[in-house]
């Protein structure tokens, strides 16, 4: 029916998205939609990128333990948004990525955004948030070896991720509002968001410092005991 049941179609998608669909979208967008081309192109690319990761995920054989642990960490990231004062979502995504790998990090980030938005409201920003948090996790996974060793580097990564994420989301806000990219509006948006960005970056670093030992120990123990 409407599903991508067929494995071949899935494989096709894997290659078609980066090499065909994305360039096509950029080209069509540049020619066709005059007013809001950047918005359409960026949203389209975000959705396609997510789709790319999903097809990859379906293809791979993931053990039940890994599934369960990823699900738990995702749930924790979502749950973190309910605890007053505590908002450890980035910290949990980064730690998951460091201990369980890039892919788990990506999905922990992307899905926790999707799920928490079921409670807090979906928006046109959902695909961007998903991609943003997903990438924070993915990158942390690739840097896992380095980050695992040093608490300071981990905190720095958390702060940097917070700042970059805010900058990226501001681009999107401006695109949405004014159609094109308007430097003045962007500066205004960044300016008004400075206090939030700072709090966000600092709290990311703080939570990583705070959670590194307990969460790290637990994930290490689980990995050792159950051979994930």
């Amino acid at each position: 029916m409407l599903t991508i049941r067929n494995t071949k179609v899935r494989t096709l998608l894997r290659y078609a998205i980066p090499f065909l669909l994305v360039p096509l979208l950029v080209a069509v967008g540049a020619v066709a939609f005059e007013g809001k081309r950047y918005l359409i192109i960026s949203l389209g690319i975000a959705v396609l990128a997510l789709l790319l990761f999903m097809t990859g995920f379906e293809r791979r054989n993931i053990g039940s333990r890994r599934m369960v642990i990823t699900a738990i960490m995702t749930a924790l990231a979502v749950f973190g948004r309910f605890i007053p004062v505590f908002k450890p979502i980035t910290a949990i995504v980064v730690l998951t990525a460091v201990y369980l790998g890039a892919e788990a990090g990506f999905f922990c980030g992307a899905l926790s955004v999707l799920l928490s938005n079921i409670y807090f409201g979906q928006g046109p920003w959902t695909p961007f948030q998903m991609l943003g948090f997903g990438l924070i996790g993915l990158l942390a996974g690739y840097l896992g070896r380095v980050l695992e060793r040093s608490r300071v580097l981990l905190a720095l990564y958390g702060a940097a991720a917070g700042v970059l994420y805010s900058l990226m989301m501001d681009v999107w806000t401006v695109l949405w509002y004014s159609g094109g990219f308007d430097g003045k509006l962007y500066l205004a948006a960044i300016g008004s968001a400075v206090p939030f960005t700072v709090v966000y970056a600092v709290s990311n670093a703080a939570f990583l410092m705070l959670l590194y030992r307990p969460v790290g120990n637990k994930l290490r123990r689980i990995k050792r005991k159950y051979g994930v």
Binding site: T55, T70, A71
Partner: peptide
């Protein structure tokens, strides 16, 4: 679930 049954399960 239509796209990826495994992802639906994870969710």
């Amino acid at each position: 679930g239509r796209f990826s049954p495994k992802l639906a399960l994870l969710l």
